[in-house]
Computed example of a mutant assay.
Amino acid sequence: MLKVGLTGGIGVGKTVVGRMFSLLGVPVYDSDARAKWVMRHDETLRLELVDAYGLKTFTEEGDLNRDYLAPLVFGNPVLLEQLNSLVHPHVRNDFTKWLDLQAKAPYVLKEAALMYESEAWKQMDQIITVHAPMDVRMKRLLQRDTHRTEADIKAIMGKQLNEDERMSRADHIIYNDGQQAVIPQVLQLHQLFLSPSA
């Protein structure tokens, strides 16, 4: 089974691209959503997180306490790196278990913003990067994430891999710049991944 990574910086539209592949019947693993699920349900990880950040890491209902954790780690590179080093191995294991359930699929897609930073690319056979120019991304994000300022968005972008490096490491690039239609690009890659030579 071919394992294809789908990545891109914040605001490029990788979730929309992932949904397009999903509509074509391709199993898509959403790393962000699964990371949230794993943090809530993996008992070992929960203990590791409480040990690292204290009892306030989870609410009384057992949910991740984002209001407590986010300000704590996102302003502190050391704590953020620690959080990623705790979470990413558990998400990798979750992905491996998920893969076993997709045995009949010709290929699967793993959507991850931090494909390279989390080392998830090592599990992939090929990588798609979704690209959009900075001004397009900023406009989308200010409309979508009304709670964020331009400075907030730039701070998030600053923590992600440089766009040029992400593109240079990709096997395929989908341009979501408002100029080129995305659906034909997705369909072309879908056919490529279904071919025996992929």
Results as ranks from 00 to 15, higher is better:
18 G>W: 10
18 G>H: 10
19 R>P: 01
20 M>T: 03
21 F>C: 12
21 F>I: 08
22 S>D: 14
22 S>W: 13
23 L>Q: 15
23 L>N: 14
25 G>E: 00
25 G>Y: 00
25 G>S: 00
25 G>A: 00
26 V>Y: 10
26 V>K: 09
26 V>F: 13
26 V>P: 06
26 V>Q: 08
27 P>N: 05
28 V>W: 10
28 V>N: 07
29 Y>D: 01
29 Y>E: 01
29 Y>S: 01
30 D>W: 12
30 D>Y: 15
31 S>W: 11
32 D>G: 09
32 D>F: 09
32 D>V: 06
32 D>T: 08
34 R>H: 10
34 R>P: 02
34 R>V: 14
34 R>L: 09
35 A>D: 08
35 A>W: 14
36 K>C: 04
37 W>F: 15
37 W>D: 14
38 V>I: 11
38 V>Q: 06
39 M>S: 08
40 R>W: 10
40 R>A: 15
40 R>M: 14
41 H>M: 12
41 H>P: 01
42 D>S: 03
44 T>S: 12
44 T>C: 05
45 L>H: 12
45 L>N: 08
46 R>Y: 08
46 R>A: 04
47 L>Q: 10
47 L>H: 04
48 E>C: 12
49 L>N: 11
49 L>A: 12
49 L>I: 14
50 V>C: 10
50 V>M: 13
50 V>I: 13
50 V>S: 11
51 D>P: 00
51 D>W: 04
51 D>A: 13
51 D>S: 14
53 Y>R: 09
53 Y>T: 04
53 Y>V: 05
55 L>A: 08
55 L>C: 00
55 L>G: 00
55 L>P: 00
55 L>H: 03
56 K>A: 15
56 K>F: 13
57 T>G: 10
57 T>I: 10
57 T>C: 12
57 T>W: 11
58 F>I: 07
59 T>D: 04
60 E>Q: 14
60 E>V: 13
60 E>S: 15
61 E>Q: 15
61 E>C: 11
61 E>T: 15
61 E>A: 15
63 D>C: 07
63 D>L: 10
64 L>P: 04
64 L>Y: 06
65 N>L: 12
65 N>C: 12
66 R>M: 01
67 D>K: 15
68 Y>G: 00
68 Y>F: 14
70 A>G: 14
70 A>S: 15
70 A>W: 14
70 A>N: 15
71 P>M: 05
72 L>A: 05
72 L>G: 05
72 L>Y: 09
73 V>Q: 05
73 V>R: 05
73 V>E: 05
74 F>D: 02
74 F>C: 02
75 G>S: 10
75 G>T: 07
75 G>C: 05
76 N>R: 03
76 N>L: 01
77 P>H: 13
78 V>N: 03
78 V>D: 09
78 V>E: 13
78 V>G: 01
79 L>Y: 07
80 L>A: 02
80 L>E: 03
80 L>F: 03
80 L>M: 08
81 E>H: 14
82 Q>M: 11
84 N>A: 06
84 N>E: 13
85 S>L: 02
85 S>C: 03
86 L>N: 06
87 V>W: 11
87 V>Q: 12
88 H>I: 12
90 H>T: 03
90 H>S: 07
92 R>D: 02
92 R>F: 02
93 N>W: 00
93 N>H: 02
94 D>H: 14
96 T>C: 02
96 T>G: 00
96 T>Y: 08
97 K>M: 09
98 W>K: 06
